[in-house]
Amino acid sequence: MKTLVHIHSGPEQPDKITLGALIAAVSAERGDEVTLFFASNAVHALASGTRETLEGVGFGALSDSLARFRAAGGRLVVSRLSSESRGYDDGFLPETAAWGTPEMLLDIAGAADATLCY
């Protein structure tokens, strides 16, 4: 199954971010082709210091779910427009992540069997 998990909520809503990341990790671990796309205020959650400390109630730490997601072969995409408009540059992009565009998000969503938004 092809799955898109689109996280657009900011760090002020840690449960949404960590739930989305956990679902993406579990989906990738079961063998699904998963893209985890961070956009809008969600890019703040990937900033150094926040990524390591963000934790949701009952959903664990963002860093743990991202590690599981990467280990399972998931594809992490970060909106370049969202990142740059919030003051982040190329050095901000997490390891193994790729920059994404609005067109890419639309293409991924169009090809997905399931799209989950948080």
Rank of each mutant, 00 (worst) to 15 (best):
A114M: 13
G31W: 08
G31L: 08
L116Y: 00
A25R: 02
G100C: 05
R30F: 08
G20S: 02
A71M: 04
S85I: 04
I108A: 10
R68M: 03
D107Q: 14
M1P: 14
L54G: 00
A97Q: 08
H44V: 10
L81F: 11
A21C: 11
A67L: 07
G74Y: 01
M104A: 15
T18E: 11
V78T: 05
A111Y: 10
D32G: 01
A24F: 03
A98F: 06
R80A: 13
A97K: 10
H44N: 12
L116F: 02
K2F: 03
I17K: 11
G74C: 01
G31C: 09
S9P: 00
S27M: 04
I108C: 06
S9T: 13
H8F: 11
H8S: 13
D90S: 13
G100A: 06
F69S: 00
Y88P: 03
L54H: 02
R30S: 13
P11I: 11
N41D: 15
G74W: 01
A114H: 15
F59D: 09
E84H: 10
G73Q: 06
E12Y: 10
I23H: 10
G91N: 12
I23R: 11
E33V: 07
G58H: 04
E55F: 03
A39Y: 09
L105F: 07
V43I: 02
W99N: 03
W99H: 03
T96Q: 15
L22N: 14
S79H: 08
M1F: 11
T53I: 07
H8N: 14
R68H: 06
G110A: 12
A98I: 09
I17H: 12
E95K: 15
G49Y: 00
G87S: 09
P94C: 05
A45Q: 03
S79Y: 08
D113I: 01
V26F: 04
A61S: 14
